[in-house]
Amino acid sequence: MTAPRPTRDQFAALRAVPTRWADNDVYGHVNNAAYYGFFDTAVNAWLIERGLLDIAESPAIGLVIETGCRYHAALSFPQTLEVALRVEKLGNSSVRYALALFAEGEPEAAADGWFVHVYVDRTTRRPVPIPAPVRAALETLIVA
């Protein structure tokens, strides 16, 4: 049995992302690889906008170590998508995000997925605890 499609109320944050001509594949819909780019954009933009990630200077950075996606309905250019975000699990040095892609205004997700960031030292690439300000902000993305 397939899990039900996620709905908007199951997420803490939402970001509009326009599709691009290059996102479509030869079948006329957004290629599956583009979905991961939408997920990555939503998470990293959320962190950057809150001053929690400086892509050139932050001493601790989150590296993606695991990702997955389930597809429910086709999306295509020129749609605007809404990427929904929440934190599913917050560990010492890792965070698992749940994400969903919605066609603009649609109540059910066209796709849903996850990815895991492990925080590492920028130089050594060894795991480090999630910085306190980042952890505090990520806690606001936890949906009960």
Rank of each mutant, 00 (worst) to 15 (best):
M1S: 15
M1C: 13
A3E: 15
P4S: 05
R5Q: 14
D9H: 13
Q10A: 15
F11K: 00
F11I: 01
L14V: 07
A16D: 12
A16C: 07
V17C: 02
V17I: 15
T19Y: 08
A22Y: 00
D25Q: 08
D25W: 11
V26L: 15
G28K: 13
H29Q: 06
N31V: 08
N32M: 01
N32F: 05
N32D: 13
A34P: 03
Y35I: 09
Y35W: 10
F38E: 04
F39C: 00
T41R: 07
A42N: 06
V43N: 02
W46D: 06
W46G: 04
I48N: 07
E49A: 12
G51W: 09
G51A: 08
D54M: 07
A56N: 15
S58E: 00
G62Y: 09
G62F: 03
L63P: 03
V64F: 04
E66V: 02
T67A: 15
A73L: 11
A74G: 14
L75M: 13
S76F: 10
F77R: 05
P78S: 05
T80D: 15
L81H: 06
A84P: 07
A84T: 01
L85S: 14
L85E: 06
R86C: 11
V87Q: 10
V87M: 09
G91V: 08
S93D: 02
S94W: 08
F102I: 09
A103Y: 00
E106M: 11
A109K: 00
A110G: 14
W114S: 13
V116W: 02
Y119M: 07
Y119E: 04
V120T: 05
D121P: 13
T123Q: 13
T124E: 11
T124F: 10
P133T: 01
V134E: 04
A137S: 08
L141I: 08
I142R: 14
